[in-house]
Amino acid sequence: MSVKKSVLEAKKNNELYIYIQPGSRFVAKAIQYSFDILKQRGEIFSEEETNRITELIENKNLKDNQESIREETWDKNSVEDKSAIELFSQLSIWGFCIAFGVIIGSILLAFNLKKLNKPKISIIVFSFGIIYTIFQFYAINYLEEINFVIKRQTFLFSGIGALILHYLFWENYIGKEISYRKKSIIKPLLICIVIFIPILYVMIENK
């Protein structure tokens, strides 16, 4: 997100103080500019307050960098060009894998491959999703039987499956350099919600 110092310089001191408050939602650069402007205007900060703001800026910088890396890694090839092919993004597929299971992520990726005229690979990806989901179910049950329970093991297995979909199938059969428009996830999200709400209800009732 681009931040112009001149915009912040036009603000009053009480407005700038909002930027440097604990729990500030603003990006690191905006906080840093606000802090610098306030000091230039003669505002005095204690050593404790200075350390707090410095730590806030450092934490925000770390978070901003992590978000930037995540976007570059997963959605770096998405574009706004309306002539580009419309595909479910890499980040969307990863998110559906974690939230609803690898089988759902594989369906989205299979859709992409079918749209790219790769029906055979599309079937292979969908089959992988089914096989991996079965493997995940038995693997987790086995680990529980031998009392070797990994914290958040469902998410761990889903994450591994998502990585396989990305590195084995997306990169090899869609490619690292393809440019595409992000396809809306609203429809598959609604379908997943409709499917999973009854399942969750039954699971809760049976506890």
Rank of each mutant, 00 (worst) to 15 (best):
K4F: 12
K4C: 09
L8G: 09
E9R: 14
E15D: 09
E15G: 02
Y33L: 03
D36R: 04
K39V: 00
Q40M: 11
G42P: 03
G42R: 04
I44H: 00
I44P: 00
T50R: 00
N51P: 05
R52L: 00
I53E: 00
T54G: 12
T54M: 02
E55L: 05
E55N: 12
L56V: 04
I57S: 05
N59R: 10
L62M: 08
K63C: 03
N65P: 03
Q66N: 09
Q66P: 01
E71R: 15
W74E: 11
K76L: 13
S78P: 10
E80D: 15
A84I: 01
I85C: 08
I85R: 11
E86Q: 14
Q90Y: 12
L91M: 11
W94A: 11
W94G: 04
F96V: 07
F96M: 12
C97G: 03
I98R: 13
V102W: 06
I104P: 02
S106P: 07
L108H: 06
F111N: 15
N112H: 02
N112W: 01
N117L: 13
N117P: 07
K118T: 01
K118F: 00
P119T: 06
P119L: 05
K120S: 11
K120W: 06
I123Q: 12
I124L: 10
V125E: 01
V125Y: 00
V125L: 00
F126V: 05
F126G: 11
I130G: 09
I131D: 06
T133P: 05
T133V: 02
I134T: 08
I134W: 07
F135K: 03
F137W: 09
F137P: 03
I140V: 13
N141G: 12
N141R: 15
E144I: 14
E145H: 13
E145Y: 10
I150N: 05
K151E: 11
R152D: 13
L156E: 07
F157L: 15
S158N: 14
G159E: 02
A162M: 10
L165G: 04
Y167V: 08
L168F: 08
W170N: 15
W170Y: 12
W170P: 11
E171W: 04
E171L: 08
N172W: 09
Y173F: 14
Y173P: 07
Y173T: 07
I174P: 07
K176M: 10
E177P: 05
E177T: 14
E177W: 11
K182C: 09
I185Q: 05
P188H: 02
L189A: 13
L189V: 06
I193W: 04
I193N: 05
V194H: 08
V194R: 08
I195Q: 07
M203S: 13
I204V: 11
I204S: 05
E205T: 12
N206E: 06
